[in-house]
Design a protein around this nucleic acid. Sequence first.
DNA 1: CAGAGTCTTTGACAAAAGTCAAAAAGCAAT
DNA 2: ATTGCTTTTTGACTTTTGTCAAAGACTCTG
Lengths: 187, 187
Amino acid sequence: MNVISFLQQTINLGPEIEADLTHIIVREQFPKNHILIRPGQYYRRLMFVEEGLIREHYLSMAGKDTTYRFHTEGSFVTADESFTDNQPSQYTFETLEDSVICSISHADFENILRQHPELEQLHILVMHQLIREMKERITALQFQTATERYESLLKSQPSIFQRVSLGHIASFLGISQETLSRIRSKR
Amino acid sequence: MNVISFLQQTINLGPEIEADLTHIIVREQFPKNHILIRPGQYYRRLMFVEEGLIREHYLSMAGKDTTYRFHTEGSFVTADESFTDNQPSQYTFETLEDSVICSISHADFENILRQHPELEQLHILVMHQLIREMKERITALQFQTATERYESLLKSQPSIFQRVSLGHIASFLGISQETLSRIRSKR
DNA sequence: CAGAGTCTTTGACAAAAGTCAAAAAGCAAT
DNA sequence: ATTGCTTTTTGACTTTTGTCAAAGACTCTG
């Protein structure tokens, strides 16, 4: 699924917008296990995962690697600190599979929104979607047990378990790898 | 701090915007422990806490009451499901202190954004701020211990402890009241 | 200020999750 | 198939957190 058809699903882009977008979008291939963005790096591009899977993770001072989240095909991805605040990214972004990523620069993003204000709707829609997901995630982490969170994930994104190692999934769920392994063995 | 001066801090509202806003803003007083929004209710207004404190919380199926978050003076607040998706709210909003709340309807909000597109900037800024906070919160819940989360809160919002009961703070931190009490006694 | 009600702390115990270390399983490349 | 590497599981033990119950402290009201 490419970005433009993805956007078409939501609002009908006129042919000029489509042409303008095609102009500024850069499409790149990356191999599995490629680091896209490292902590400390400035990366002011809005990405869209056309194929593959990105893991966004965080290194604690103790050196522990914690998955903040996975981004699969059809997701928009930014290094928020960089893209919105022009600060260095705190997180690492790496591909876990061969991936195709489309992206546009922050400047082009601002320009196209200025030229086609209808797109603002879409922008806001994406942010609302994000906020909704984050809110669910917060409440899950706040008052569900590890087992409940595991089962939610199994229901909402079963394919993740075929695609990602359990260590990464465990840290995403906020538990240790061993605990996840034990939860899984009990069924 | 009233809404308009609050907004002035960020961008310079022209006098017409200011007049238009003044027109549509409703200012209300609520006593302590007043329920503003109950689960199941449709509430399509954007609120701004001018004075006081709102607690947003969730009732699990087990009947457990978990604080999703606190909204203090100078915060924008909505029942997201209602305001953005026109669905019934899942959360309860209640004042924990006598509060003054300004609000505008969803329709007025849309209209004023259409009439004064400069405001869109501000709208987006508020969402970015929110997303940043939520991301921090998620990582904290994912890989910090209860004690670390307690200490962050103590650092970032020390006044909360003077204003809110420990039971509510405990559920906000994702721990039981007793655990919070024990963390506190060890220092 | 007495008494009801709420909030907070404490104790004893149970359950959940983390840690460390080692074994087992899986995978890829020779 | 064998070797080396990574991932996953298992076991033994520790730490953290939760639960239940009761006691103490605090607050508000009549």
